[in-house]
Design a protein around this nucleic acid. Structure first.
Lengths: 119, 119
DNA sequence: AGATCGGTCAACCGAATTGTTGAATGACAG
DNA sequence: CTGTCATTCAACAATTCGGTTGACCGATCT
């Protein structure tokens, strides 16, 4: 539907492409976390974690609330939903078609290449 | 449940992070396409397109069938579904919450209105 | 004032990604 | 045998990425 979402989707999927960042999202699904909290399990420097958080934030996947001297992060439903919706537009490929896929392909193959001639 | 999916998910989301590759997926959703077909609308060399196709293929998002001298590609439901499922595990953030967000806020506001709630 | 704490910023490094061009592949047409 | 087609492969340049280290910021507690 919306096609100008492209740069946004790129940022979202790119952010999702890193396992460390997916871990952070998993943690954030359990509740709010500070940048330090998010960094802790990942054996990387705080600065590196800060970059990951920044990537998640600029993709819109999380939001940050500066409380005190700690930056408290939480998930943002909107961006998560945007990625989900994009994938959902291809849903028919695993609902309507999944079971028939092989048969369909076999039929199409036959239709386009009727010759049974060998090599 | 499935945590060893991590490298697979990284490949899938990474592949999805590129707008050219998302375009290719959109084209492939309409039917089978050769590498040349996929390259055509994108003002890049055929070799570059070939690399994109390779990225999609090794992420499992598409499969390739070498017919004649043309490589015919089609979407693979499985990988699409894997990404969808991962995102779906966070669904509560936009189903339970997003749709009801306003109501929830309204309820919280009303929670001040005593209703047997101990505070 | 000085120390400390949670984070960010800037500079840098090595590896991966994206693009290019030109040559190679493999089956078929002539 | 040679040319063509669709695509890949190899080599190369530019850019981006994820990581590090060290300096810096801003607020608080001695």
């Amino acid at each position: 539907m919306i096609e100008s979402e492209s740069p946004r989707l790129s940022a979202i999927f790119h952010a999702l492409g890193d396992p460390t960042r997916r871990d952070m999202i998993r943690d954030l699904a359990k509740g709010e976390r500070s940048v330090g909290d998010l960094a802790a399990p990942h054996d990387i420097s705080l600065a590196a974690a800060s970059k990951h958080v920044k990537a998640l934030e600029s993709a819109g996947l999380i939001r940050r609330e500066i409380r005190w001297r700690t930056h408290v992060c939480h998930l943002n439903a909107e961006a998560l939903a945007a990625a989900h919706d994009w994938l959902d537009s291809y849903r028919r490929f695993w609902t309507d078609r999944l079971d028939n896929l092989e048969d369909l392909l076999r039929q199409e193959k036959k239709a386009q290449h009727p010759k049974g001639d060998a090599k």
